[in-house]
Design a protein around this nucleic acid. Sequence first.
DNA 1: CAAGAGTATGTCGCATCGGACATACAGTCA
DNA 2: TGACTGTATGTCCGATGCGACATACTCTTG
Lengths: 115, 115
Amino acid sequence: MKKSKINRLRAAGWRVGSVREFLELSDEDVALIELKLAVADVIRRTRQRRELTQTGLAKLIGSSQSRVAKMEAGDASVSLDLMFRTAFSLGLSANEVSKQIAKPRPARGSSKKVG
Amino acid sequence: MKKSKINRLRAAGWRVGSVREFLELSDEDVALIELKLAVADVIRRTRQRRELTQTGLAKLIGSSQSRVAKMEAGDASVSLDLMFRTAFSLGLSANEVSKQIAKPRPARGSSKKVG
DNA sequence: CAAGAGTATGTCGCATCGGACATACAGTCA
DNA sequence: TGACTGTATGTCCGATGCGACATACTCTTG
């Protein structure tokens, strides 16, 4: 295993910095992961705003609910290509996605703190 | 063949709209292709600004010159993941990439006109 | 012209991605 | 409690991406 579990960790509230040395992650890897997580968040929020279920979105993009779930979880098995394509299917433009990403999101998951 | 040749066409100076009906391209596909082409441009310009050859950049990202060439050509065999990772390796941040993309680039390739 | 540097194109084998399916988990309602 | 809806997780296998290599093209320099 190398980057198969990173997203899980990060999604669970870990600060990336804390696992970076432990796993072998380059700066670019970290940046890419954070980008994916940001896009994942945009997708989830947009889907919810559109009042779509994961299943509904899956149908919209010609995929399955599990893919959507993984996508929103920032799972390593999902590419940026699929994420952006999905965002576009939700009616977002590239610029809109960019703006949503730039904007700091309200720190979800405040429970599992890290020392 | 479906989307294997699109980039070539587009890169050769075609307006995407003109081939859209001919090939079976959804709006999302088109948006994704344009995004890739935009990122490709950012990469090329940044590489040149850093006075790197494609071979040099390839070494930098642990890949080969041919990959870099395809990447900058917006070839369909290159993922957004690789492109962003490359942009990050060049020292760009996600926001910097976004800004570069937003900014309209100066219409490269004025030779092979269409129509 | 030759030689070299830089870039482009095509292909191959292996690794990863993606849709599908099964199944588990979390909430809600009666 | 059971039934139902929505979400998460794990796995399979066909499809696609990637590094590598060969090779061709484009310039420049001599």
